[in-house]
């Protein structure tokens, strides 16, 4: 197992991860972080898991060339991670704070139990995205995806904001089935589309028009998103959006005999 090659130029710590096992790689990052490193550039990443897992600190920034493996930024609390390509499953798992920017597509189960921070994906996302996201006081997690999403988007969602911009290829569906199933908090903003059909929705949610407060939220978040991906904000914002919200905060309130 080759050890990771770490190099420091100016403030940036560059790590060549070619052929390096994830445990070794993440150990190098943690060690450099302990020594005061803040800026990381990971090169030749090829499926290494758990990058950024449990890292703390808002001033930490990790740029990744190549496709990182599952659980990117799991339990993370503060850092920013920029992935210059696609990424895999389990990104932002139980993340508390920080920001992850994916310049390509991302996989399944993104933002599971995420409590804070932001996950911006330029392209498509897989199944079960935003599952059981929650919010607490000032902590409101945000996931924005530019493309289409798979089944179970926002399943069990208890808080937070999920935005789907819905850029899609011909014959593609913007959303899958079981949209917002079990959702009991938070909000999903979707680009308006014929793909949002009644029979695709979880029984706990309803489609509604935006109000002023919603528009303000969208203005702010989409500006940031478009800036990060150098997209045309006006064009993105111009599209019609609808929101998906739970019809009851207590969908499980009447199940039991006491």
């Amino acid at each position: 197992m080759p050890a990771s090659k770490t190099k420091k130029t100016g403030k940036t710590i560059t790590i060549d991860a070619k052929g390096v096992y994830y445990r070794e790689l993440n150990h190098s990052i943690r060690t450099a972080l302990k020594a005061g490193g803040k800026e990381f550039h990971l090169k030749n990443i090829n499926g290494q898991r758990y990058i950024g897992d449990g890292l703390v600190g808002r001033d930490v920034r990790i740029t990744i060339d190549g496709v990182p493996g599952n659980d990117l930024g799991a339990f993370m609390d503060g850092p920013t991670i920029v992935v210059n390509s696609n990424a895999q499953d389990g990104i932002s798992n139980t993340m508390n704070d920080g920001k992850i920017i994916i310049h390509g597509d991302a996989g399944d189960v993104l933002g599971y139990g995420m409590r804070g921070g932001k996950l911006f994906v330029r392209g498509d996302v897989g199944y079960r995205v935003g599952i059981h996201m929650k919010e607490f006081k000032a902590k409101i997690p945000v996931i924005i995806a530019g493309g289409v999403a798979g089944d179970f988007l926002g399943e069990y969602m208890a808080g937070g904001i999920l935005i789907l911009l819905g850029e899609k290829k011909k014959n593609e569906m913007m959303v899958g089935d079981y949209l917002g199933t079990g959702m009991h908090g938070g909000v999903i903003y979707l680009k308006y589309s014929d793909d949002i059909k009644e029979d695709r929705l979880g029984k706990e949610v309803a489609v509604m028009e935006l109000d002023d407060a919603d528009n303000k939220v969208l203005d702010k978040l989409l500006k940031e998103y478009c800036q990060d991906f150098r997209m045309d904000y006006d064009k993105t914002r111009q599209q019609r959006f609808v929101k998906l919200k739970p019809v009851s905060h207590r969908p499980y309130g009447k199940l039991y005999a006491y």
Partner: peptide, 21 residues
């Protein structure tokens, strides 16, 4: 309880049957 679980006061705390990952 809200502080410790990190969820709003009065909201239902649902633990789904499986870990979805």
């Amino acid at each position: 309880v809200s502080q410790t679980r990190m969820i709003p006061i009065g909201s239902d705390a649902l633990s789904p049957a499986p870990h979805h990952d």
